[in-house]
Amino acid sequence: MAAGGDHGSPDSYRSPLASRYASPEMCFVFSDRYKFRTWRQLWLWLAEAEQTLGLPITDEQIQEMKSNLENIDFKMAAEEEKRLRHDVMAHVHTFGHCCPKAAGIIHLGATSCYVGDNTDLIILRNALDLLLPKLARVISRLADFAKERASLPTLGFTHFQPAQLTTVGKRCCLWIQDLCMDLQNLKRVRDDLRFRGVKGTTGTQASFLQLFEGDDHKVEQLDKMVTEKAGFKRAFIITGQTYTRKVDIEVLSVLASLGASVHKICTDIRLLANLKEMEEPFEKQQIGSSAMPYKRNPMRSERCCSLARHLMTLVMDPLQTASVQWFERTLDDSANRRICLAEAFLTADTILNTLQNISEGLVVYPKVIERRIRQELPFMATENIIMAMVKAGGSRQDCHEKIRVLSQQAASVVKQEGGDNDLIERIQVDAYFSPIHSQLDHLLDPSSFTGRASQQVQRFLEEEVYPLLKPYESVMKVKAELCL
């Protein structure tokens, strides 16, 4: 049975990233139509530049190519590739079939990587351009969430054990800070992308030097003109047959890092959902379990974690691919890159769409948070109580021993009897502590235990987050809708 299948058929496997999760716009960027249309555009740009620099290419040939950029006979191309065992030459023939007058000058002087690699770089750039505003929107939604809850005390956790208090907004800023680093890295790697350009079979530009009869300047002009037509500021000066596969490492490393950030955020949300302090959106008709109707599973956060793990592992592909590119190139890269580049971007696209949807509907339960604080705060307040007693004339050592005994009794009630923490009640009825009984409410005010959390939130948002989001103001209103 021949390899390949009808990918629109229910009898043929289709990647869930495309069929179930990723956005239509990201799927289109990695589609065959987008790819092969870009090949034709690159052939047109090459012909236009070659004509401008004096090669015998007519206006009629150029116009014929322009008129057929979208006229792609995919069936013919597939048949040609089956016959020739070469995808680029299959599309040269297919393009030439609908451009008979231009057929002889299509791909003039070029090698397969002229269309293959340059198209990949265009796709990487455009895919990054799709991700950047999506990530900015996630940051914006979380920034709104953090600002609104900047002063809401909550129990902090280290080692997932109760620690000092923080605020809900401050905790959210930990998430935002990681995503801001990801946004900066995505922008950097996007701006650092260079075009492969017009380089020939081993990167020496020998074929173009021959076409222009040894004119170095025209060869350099050709490279520059096509690079500018493709919208790049610069091209690699040095290439082998391909652009260095280190570029793929750079791009997928940034995406993998984004995956790590999203995994951490969504894990926190899942843990908070278990504590009943916070939940992701839950639709009115949504079913959490087929057997347990009360369940409210954090399905979206779980999906993000599941896909983020996949995204983090994909960076190993370009690392290994770059390491086995012998001399000017081997074909070890080809099949692998067809999979890992598309999957990385479709996965990143999915987790950003999902995280935006989550961040637009996060639900906080202040009463649950308050109750958990009441359970733990008495123990945390013991040092403040000791200091207040010393100020009232008591002995630190005597007070410490009193607190120690009462704390152990209260802990026994919590752990052995399943009761509430009654340390404060014990202190309130103990005559030894009568000098500070009137101060206990103040000493137990949760806001006095959150330090500068709310001020940190305000400063972080104003100095770091809002300036970073400013270039994306025009796209901030787009909502994230999930079908599944």
Rank of each mutant, 00 (worst) to 15 (best):
I424K: 15
P378F: 03
R303Q: 06
L307I: 15
V226Q: 01
Y294G: 03
H86E: 00
G116H: 00
L406N: 09
I72Y: 11
A344L: 05
R141F: 12
G451T: 00
G288S: 07
L211P: 06
T382F: 04
T330L: 03
L307P: 02
A103R: 14
L131M: 15
F195K: 00
A322G: 09
L84E: 14
G4D: 15
D420Q: 05
L362H: 08
F449Y: 14
I72Q: 09
P467C: 09
R329E: 03
V364M: 08
L443K: 04
V262G: 08
S257F: 06
N68Q: 13
I369T: 08
Q408I: 05
I386G: 03
M65V: 08
S407E: 11
S140I: 14
L121I: 08
C304F: 00
D144F: 15
L209M: 07
A235W: 12
S447Y: 14
G394D: 12
A335Q: 04
R83T: 11
V363F: 08
G8D: 15
H263P: 04
G203L: 01
A410G: 05
D191T: 12
Q397W: 03
S112D: 03
C340V: 15
R296D: 07
P298D: 00
E60M: 12
L377S: 04
H263T: 14
S359T: 10
H217G: 11
A453S: 13
R85S: 03
Y432M: 07
Q210D: 10
F460M: 06
L193Y: 05
L346G: 08
E328F: 06
A103D: 14
M26L: 07
F157T: 02
H442G: 11
K276M: 05
M316D: 06
L314R: 09
G393T: 05
T52D: 12
N357S: 15
M312E: 06
S454L: 09
R188F: 05
G54M: 09
P446C: 03
V115R: 01
T267R: 03
Q177S: 14
Y294A: 03
Y114V: 02
R372W: 03
C399D: 05
C399E: 07
E425S: 11
M76A: 10
Q51F: 05
L307S: 09
A410P: 06
A90Y: 04
N384Y: 07
D332F: 06
V254C: 10
E50C: 07
T354C: 15
E481T: 14
D349P: 02
V219Y: 00
S447G: 12
V254Q: 13
Q455C: 08
L211K: 01
C99M: 03
I369W: 02
E473W: 11
I424H: 14
A335F: 02
Q320S: 08
K170C: 02
S9L: 13
D223M: 06
P100W: 09
R125N: 06
V226I: 09
D178T: 04
R190Y: 07
T201L: 02
Q184F: 08
A150P: 02
L128A: 09
T94P: 01
T267P: 06
